[in-house]
Nucleic acid binder design. Sequence first.
DNA 1: TCAAGGCGTTGACTTAGATCAATTCCAGAA
DNA 2: TTCTGGAATTGATCTAAGTCAACGCCTTGA
Lengths: 232, 232
Amino acid sequence: MRSSDLPQVRSLELFKSMGDSNFDTLMQAAYLQTFPSQLELIAEGDPADFLYVVIEGCVELFARTNGRESTMGMVHPVGTFILAAVLKDAVYLMSARTCRRSKVLMVPSENIREVFQRDEAFARAIVVELASCYRTVVKEHKDLKLRTAVERLANRLLRYHVDQGESGMLELPHDKRTLASLLGMTPENLSRAFNTLKPYGVVVDGNRISLDDVEALATLAKPNPLIDDRNT
Amino acid sequence: MRSSDLPQVRSLELFKSMGDSNFDTLMQAAYLQTFPSQLELIAEGDPADFLYVVIEGCVELFARTNGRESTMGMVHPVGTFILAAVLKDAVYLMSARTCRRSKVLMVPSENIREVFQRDEAFARAIVVELASCYRTVVKEHKDLKLRTAVERLANRLLRYHVDQGESGMLELPHDKRTLASLLGMTPENLSRAFNTLKPYGVVVDGNRISLDDVEALATLAKPNPLIDDRNT
DNA sequence: TCAAGGCGTTGACTTAGATCAATTCCAGAA
DNA sequence: TTCTGGAATTGATCTAAGTCAACGCCTTGA
């Protein structure tokens, strides 16, 4: 792989604390590939042969059953996905496709499991990473079970707003149909939810949103750190 | 703690492979307590001081926000809960209450984290356990996002049916209001969902259900191993 | 330059599911 | 035994959200 990408990977929490030689082992076994947009990288049900790391671009995790489909999450650089399947040596529970041209690092599962045995620090990092993933899904599950569609959207907007520096403006990181699926609703309903939020100072212009009354929006959204904070 | 309970705990996947002395250390630091029914053991937002193991009885995990409440899971003997919070040294994301008089083992978080460092096998077991928990929630999330209420109920009945030996009869392991909340619906709606399933051979008598036409029910439910199987 | 196709929006309508209220049916306490 | 309160069910109604169809508006590509 290109050496200019290595420091990025190394700086990931997951790989930061492990020994140099073990890191090298992993990287030498890994493949770095660039994929075109809309390519299905993995399909749910397939055995987990690789741990994936998104270096550039964007990857959508989604699930299908019985003809229906739903976006389960989005992975941006530098992030990993399907760690749990790799560690359990099980099949993937989610499919993944690129949202745009993307550079992806693929680390063979065996090597991950092998180094996990050898490297104390890596093992600890994996546990922390896994626990974080777990807690993220629990929060998403709470979000879906305890809130209406409008509330989910309002809280999501507040999150993006904070992420992007609380300037009163924000940009949606994905297109609206993906956002809708992520929030568990149809595109039509998302559009209507935006209209519902208009009286709370939410002004939509394409994928640029301005929040003219964050107070009012927060009163409606009632954000809860045990659902909305990513780092608790 | 009573020595008669020890083998049960020791036989848990999580504790099975660790060293004897480390297991003893954990158990000596632990408290075994019996709690009355409906007692709130932990509240979401509290720091994770203990890992819990249900020895007898039953514990309900639930979450609240903004006046609403939802059951997130049920823990039966012998099972653990809130491992992720303990390992991350973070706050609990869910609350827990006893469903009936229950015997619970409480292992201090510090000891868990300490032994995790020392005991290779324990670390590995923790990773497998965490990965399993993670995959369970992902499946529940898929269930909720991709299926209607009736489908969720149908698949749940099929699961209980298999769990209980496929005799054509099954017993609901919790009362109906809890089941409703677990499946993400109201008690009224659960009652109507049972009626909807009547033409598919589902006969309800209190918490005893008989499935007179498993084929037909399965055709409706369209079970998916990547959602419904607990061990994949 | 003009299609052509995809995304987003809107309107009309349907439907799944929630809410509210009333009733029945127990199981446990007096 | 009777009383009582919670669980479950049912009916009536309401509401959130999905579906279907039409349309505008871009972007892309010939």
